[in-house]
């Protein structure tokens, strides 16, 4: 078991013929991911070929899902069309839509989020590195890689990782892997202020997942999502958690790369979040170099 996706989950890629989408579709195929379909409107009937793989391209998500059994989409379409691409996944009844696209207008996401309420499809992202459930092969080959993370840094194991940032996820994963600790699933929930899945949502999934024994949660300045997750965990989470919060040195009021990474008030600074997480019994690393180390202070295997 893992969360959200397993190694045999069948995925499709929206925007597979674009520069960004094709690059990462190839990397996923090389990683051994069950990438079974692509969607590019107007290019239905063509094939996406790479290293002996021949992936059919469809005009619509609905057709791709029906013909190939894909249940998850990785969305690489440009910002002006991304909201529509997410809604197309909802209409097709997919289990999961993972929106990698960075730069979607906040008004588009507000409408998408409202439209997704009480629908079957879960959204991860947008502006996220995606989801990886590592495989059991050499350098975690054979895993389910959705998005843009480097596959080889992973190792299948028992630590769940959830983060708003891509590169910080890779740091945490690499720190774990080089210490011999594998991951159950790594989830990048994205750096935007309106997203589909929160830290708390992912903690709940990890808490229920028998394979996950411990959790690293990576957050940053802005909003209160990490604090909500921490408060819930203090009451309900049975598993040890370590955390890192980026942005202790960020000046207030400035948007630090991620649209959501902005200090607006007293409660969304890095210091405030770290203090509250510590009060919730979470092992907080002050340095991004110590994320795995912090986890090992509370997680003994």
């Amino acid at each position: 078991m893992a969360i959200l996706v397993e190694t045999d989950t069948r995925i499709l890629v929206q925007g597979i013929t674009g520069d960004f989408g094709s690059r990462h579709a190839k990397a996923s195929l090389d990683y051994g991911t069950q990438l079974v379909a692509g969607v590019t409107p107007g290019k239905g009937g063509q094939f996406f070929e790479h290293n002996g793989h021949k992936v059919p391209v469809f005009d619509t998500v609905e057709e791709a899902a029906r013909e190939t059994g894909a249940t998850v989409s990785a969305i690489f379409v440009p910002p002006p069309f991304a909201a529509d691409a997410i809604l197309e996944c909802v209409d097709a009844g997919l289990d999961l839509a993972v929106a990698i696209t960075e730069g979607i207008p906040v008004n588009d996401m507000i409408r998408v989020k409202a439209a997704m309420a009480r629908k079957k499809t879960r959204l991860i992202g947008p502006n996220c590195p995606g989801v990886v459930t590592p495989g059991r092969g050499d350098k975690s080959h054979g895993g389910c890689r959705i998005g843009i993370a480097p596959g080889y840094i992973h190792k299948r194991g028992n630590v769940g990782v959830v983060s708003r940032s891509g590169t910080l996820t890779y740091e945490a994963v690499w720190q774990l892997t080089t210490r011999g600790y594998g991951q159950s699933t790594c989830v990048g929930i994205g750096g935007d202020p309106v997203n589909g899945t929160s830290h708390l949502d992912v903690l709940k999934l990890f808490n229920e997942d028998p394979e996950t024994e411990a959790i690293i949660m990576i957050g940053e300045i802005g909003g209160t999502a990490e604090v909500e997750a921490g408060r819930w965990a203090a009451e309900h989470c049975k598993k040890p958690i370590a955390a890192f919060i980026a942005g202790a040195t960020a000046p207030p009021g400035r948007r630090m790369g991620h649209a959501g990474a902005i200090v607006g008030g007293a409660e969304d600074t890095a210091e405030a979040k770290k203090r509250i997480l510590r009060e919730c019994g979470i092992a907080v690393a002050d340095s991004p170099a110590d994320m795995a180390q912090a986890l090992l202070t509370v997680y003994k295997k």
Partner: peptide, 24 residues
């Protein structure tokens, strides 16, 4: 740095070691 999260974290770690970041 590559990546917004790591860029912020890099500023943080500079500060943690007693320096002051000049930029994000």
């Amino acid at each position: 740095v590559n990546g917004a999260g790591l860029a912020m974290a890099t500023m943080d770690i500079i500060k943690l070691h007693g320096g002051e970041p000049a930029n994000f």
